[in-house]
Design a protein around this nucleic acid. Sequence first.
DNA 1: CTGAAAGCGCTTACAG
DNA 2: CTGAAAGCGCTTACAG
Lengths: 330, 330
Amino acid sequence: MPAKLRDVAQRAGVSIKTVSRVVNNQGEISEATRQRVLAAIADLDYRPSKVARALVTQRTDTIGLVLGDITNPFFPEVARGVLDAAEPQGYNVFLCNSDGDLQRETRILESLLDHGVDGVIIFPTFELEPALRRLAGPDRPVVVVNRPYDLPNVSAVMIHTRRGAQLAVEHLIRQGHTAIAMLAGQSHEVPQLQRVRGYRDALTARGLPVRDEWIVGGVPIQSRGRESALTLLSRYPEITAIFAYNDLLALGAIEACHELGRRVPADCAIVGFDDIPLAGAVCPALTTVRVDKYDLGRRATERLFEMMAQPEQMFAPIWADVELIVRASA
Amino acid sequence: MPAKLRDVAQRAGVSIKTVSRVVNNQGEISEATRQRVLAAIADLDYRPSKVARALVTQRTDTIGLVLGDITNPFFPEVARGVLDAAEPQGYNVFLCNSDGDLQRETRILESLLDHGVDGVIIFPTFELEPALRRLAGPDRPVVVVNRPYDLPNVSAVMIHTRRGAQLAVEHLIRQGHTAIAMLAGQSHEVPQLQRVRGYRDALTARGLPVRDEWIVGGVPIQSRGRESALTLLSRYPEITAIFAYNDLLALGAIEACHELGRRVPADCAIVGFDDIPLAGAVCPALTTVRVDKYDLGRRATERLFEMMAQPEQMFAPIWADVELIVRASA
DNA sequence: CTGAAAGCGCTTACAG
DNA sequence: CTGAAAGCGCTTACAG
């Protein structure tokens, strides 16, 4: 049986209120009393119950991190950034995988609400507005990655996705490519649209035509990248370069090239996005657009704490920068 | 302001106890009352507060997962297994990184205690016994990975590490290698000792001598693997094969071989351990010992729930199997 | 089948 | 500088 406030009070010969005061370091207390209480706390190995405290303060010292899938190599570093920023504030983090499934995403948010989390960081897959209206409040801010919402107590961290896509495609054009296809990821997502825009921007800026049949959507996983690239390169052999929505798709495209006997980058150059740990290790090493994932997680969390501290204030989106990393594949 | 039990009771015209009964599906209730209460719950969009409930039941529907570092590619799949097993039981999971730091590990466990978690799964780096004595109890079981403790309410999930190491080295011997070195990881850890044992077992079983100077310890990260392999291969050029504590060290060894102009596997064969996602993607693809990480996480979590259900019972360790995956590097 | 009382372990006004 | 009372939102015996 762990010691309670009452046990400590009894042993120190004071009221529980006094103990509470020294635990929370509030109010004036005579040094003698303080020492007596501190001694009792040490003797009994007392630790205040966060759940009892939470019931009255309505704060659980807990936040939720909702992402697609922690085994997607994009996310572990993000999570690490979140954890590292949360820990010094005394916060614990619930990790939740939505799997890009609307049902699960909704269920997770309800569950976090039930647990009384003090805030949420979410990488959304779907339109979140109704859920956010329920979830977000002055006591429970939400940071959304890659989707701007004009809602109170909601703020955004945006990745410079469009610029990243542009950098990637410009690089390919500089290498002399004019027939550049795109593995575009799942349609109608904001990050997807941004990448397609960047791709178009770069092509039209150089006077190259945009061919819609060269923009192929699909779930952004490696096997799908392989299939899509296989189809694309068989049907349009004139393609000499591919820009992929993310590194996993790019890896799939490299696989496809190997199968088709196309050398990378000589016969087909490939650029990815994200710079996951795999990117530098595969052969050929992947040219890609780096996102500082750790920093993303860290900054999202710091923003969340800022919002907790200033519930009334509106916050402009945080913009996370991107960087072209040139390796062997393009 | 979210609705409370009292609001629901008021609207349904019953006592809060009755509402509590229908929410928790306990006790006999007339169907009419039940429907009335259900309607009130739906109308008010009522959700019971887990923190209020936790204060009285002493159950938070929360578990802690303590691992070294989620960005270590071994762990995301483990975490996924834990999450997937916890979710259907209505449990949320606190993710905590210990970084193999004793201070942090201790602090994390205290923090989980404060939050009143119902159980903990931990990949320990250090001697945990004192901490476990405080943490573990009939109401709070602990599953420890890779360390057997003979404590009540503590059980173990063990990986067949020794057998795995043996498989790896036997494979190298079958390929004709007799000069086999080992990058051994950090000393005095159980998993480390097990691997060294397996390495010795395999060598002596085939009548090969064990040379202690060919067993090199060190933090199991890629850069360290490179350095250690560089030293080892320069000092003892007769070495033709390396067995590494984990895939990250093996990757470092491949790097070292490239730098030294040694072809892998022709001039130096390399076998890793874990089969992280990178292993199949690098060149040459890494021969390694696979641990089913997802399954490990899932089974650890299921065991935790079994322990919650039967607090008095002692559980034998779960043994997670390993498998040699032969690819290109050996 | 349903309810009134007590209490989980704390903090928050309010007194003194 | 310190304490007694009320209450956070639920569940747990105990009655009826």
